[in-house]
Write a protein that binds this DNA or RNA. Structure first.
Lengths: 154, 154
DNA sequence: TTCTCATGGAACTTGATATGTTACGTGTGT
DNA sequence: ACACACGTAACATATCAAGTTCCATGAGAA
């Protein structure tokens, strides 16, 4: 099935912004992600509404982080995206009249609910600051160049 | 995102077959599921290859269960369907050069892997016989009518 | 003011994929 | 022969993330 990679994408954007002094334009971010500026703006819309980021128009404008990275979890980001479905599979019907299907739904539904709860728990336990710290650890281990852009160059 | 309901569907079919004496045609099963006979045949193709069910052509033909329900788990059924992806979300890229994305992928990937493993564990722990037993429990609790067909009537 | 930059948002296109449908071939029993 | 039922291919549909184009709006610079 087709995958939804918005959460992964928006986190990538946020960490890049965290490393960048001053605002980053949608165009810069799009280049870093190998995509289109409009896609970036769509991704960020929900985050802006929640006040996690801020946007300025005109010269010197762009996106800025507007929150404490230690206070925002991946769960917050996930919710800002509109809580997209996490599981690619589910029950055929809700509240079916067929007892056979009820039995199937009950068994599968339990498993699905647990898996979803697990993911949300994990998201809630991870802050953006933790992700950033992991990045800096990798950076130190690798050599220390902070020139992120070149890692995205084609 | 669009959901894949094949596992739910194929289990529904199997339990109906288990309750039905003699073969069931794709047409009967399709009516019970509110779908098309060809869809049923597609669903069953993998199960037939694995020997979980058997099909006969011509008069009096149709589908028959060809395995011990106590020996087949939902995991077996899931694999017979070709192991469709369970999660609706994932990482934007595999093995990215960008350290930021590596950090994101590592964090999310761990959570995704755990959720998937949890689902597979649950599938492996549930046999078709267990599902069938659950159905019979519901049936006894509700009244005892075994006329399943009418529960599907429009 | 006028020009350029950058976001905001609508509308359209694309690609992937589960599901639905039609059509035809093959084999089986009456 | 004939009707039944599976097997398969081919095509249609629906959904949705992702990509793209276009224009409006607002902010700073010349």
């Amino acid at each position: 099935m087709r995958k939804d990679n918005r959460l992964s994408g928006v986190l990538h954007v946020l960490l890049h912004m965290a490393e960048h002094p001053g605002p980053m334009t949608s165009e810069m971010l799009a280049r870093a992600m190998g995509t289109n500026p409009v896609v970036i703006r769509r991704l960020m819309a929900g985050l802006r509404e929640r006040g996690f980021v801020q946007s300025e128009k005109g010269h010197g404008g762009g996106w800025t982080i507007a929150c404490d990275l230690r206070a925002v979890t991946l769960l917050d980001v996930y919710e800002a995206l509109g809580r997209p479905g996490l599981l690619a599979t589910g029950n055929r019907t809700e509240a079916p009249g067929c007892l056979v299907e009820q039995a199937v739904n009950a068994a599968l539904g339990d498993a699905f609910d647990e898996a979803e709860a697990l993911l949300l728990r994990r998201f809630g336990a991870l802050t953006l600051a933790a992700l950033s710290a992991d990045f800096h650890e990798r950076l130190a281990r690798r050599g220390g160049s902070t020139d992120l852009e070149k890692n995205h160059a084609a």
